[in-house]
Design a protein around this nucleic acid. Structure first.
Length: 264
DNA sequence: TGTGATGTTGAATG
DNA sequence: GCATTCAACATCAC
């Protein structure tokens, strides 16, 4: 379920569970999601290391190790963390687990195996290599405008582009478009600076609300689009317009006809 | 039982 | 080289 606010929650969970902990051993059940090492090499690299903290950027969570290296956790579509002591609490789709010296176990679950786990010598080099953009919570208006002005793709396409800004995914992109009354398929070069500014404002507002309230979607305020998301044909929030489904930037997309405009 | 899924990538194309 | 599009990835749930 992970977009920026959800990964923020993972960070809180991870920090409480793992910071200051020393890894006694690593149990790997399926090394498919470990993208730059074999299972045994991964276990070897982590054994004996102490976790000193973590850094989140967009949907990427970097665990910091006492040797200056990092462990990247990217949750894909279905990644999750699970702290437990007793084997009976191990989840069915755990792919690997860190066994700490105090007996606690931190499992990484991932049914669909779209997660990406990498052992990194240098986190910042990696961030440069994948061209990961500024965090969607922090991006300045100027950086945003400079990055997107004049683009020929859709507004949803740029919101999902992690090298422009990091953290927005399919659900929040629709939420942001709904709030600004802009159709997700509107071409960026058809939008005014005012509209692009409101996209920036709402992006930061949505991400901030999500991280500060650490809620689950169903707890979001009544007037959020999320509540009618995926409910094609239903009235929009507050009874205005009608929810429609389409495809934008290769992703299933919902918007409210009669509320969101496809500017020319 | 076929289809779609809160994501990213690399190849192909312009 | 850059911008953009899109199929592919692996598996589960409805």
């Amino acid at each position: 379920m992970p977009e920026l606010p959800e990964v923020h929650n993972f960070k809180l969970y991870f920090d409480a569970a793992a910071t200051g902990q020393t890894i006694a051993s690593v149990r790997v059940h399926d090394d498919y999601i470990i993208r730059n090492m074999s299972g045994p090499a991964f276990a070897d690299a982590l054994a004996g290391r102490t976790i000193t903290g973590s850094l989140r950027r967009g949907k990427y969570l970097f665990a910091e190790l006492d040797n200056g290296h990092s462990l990247l956790l990217h949750f894909g579509m279905t990644g999750d963390l699970n702290l437990y002591q007793d084997e009976v609490d191990r989840h069915k789709f755990e792919r690997f687990a860190l066994h700490f010296t105090d007996g606690n176990i931190l499992g990484f679950d991932d049914p669909r195996k779209f997660a990406r786990i990498l052992y990194l010598h240098d986190r910042d080099t990696y961030i440069r290599e994948i061209k990961l953009g500024p965090d969607a919570l922090d991006i300045s208006l100027q950086t945003w405008l400079t990055a997107v002005r004049g683009r020929k793709t859709t507004i949803k396409g740029v919101l999902l582009n992690q090298s422009i800004l990091a953290g927005v995914g399919n659900l929040y992109a629709d939420e942001i478009c709904y709030r600004t009354r802009i159709h997700p398929a509107a071409r960026v070069d058809s939008l005014t600076d005012e509209q692009l500014t409101s996209i920036h404002t709402e992006t930061v507002a949505v991400m901030t609300y999500g991280t500060e309230n650490a809620p689950y979607y169903k707890n979001y305020p009544e007037n959020w689009f999320w509540h009618v998301w995926r409910q094609e044909g239903k009235p929009g929030p507050e009874g205005i317009g009608e929810v429609k489904i389409t495809k934008v930037a290769g992703r299933t997309t919902y918007y409210v006809e009669g509320w969101q405009m496809l500017v020319e």
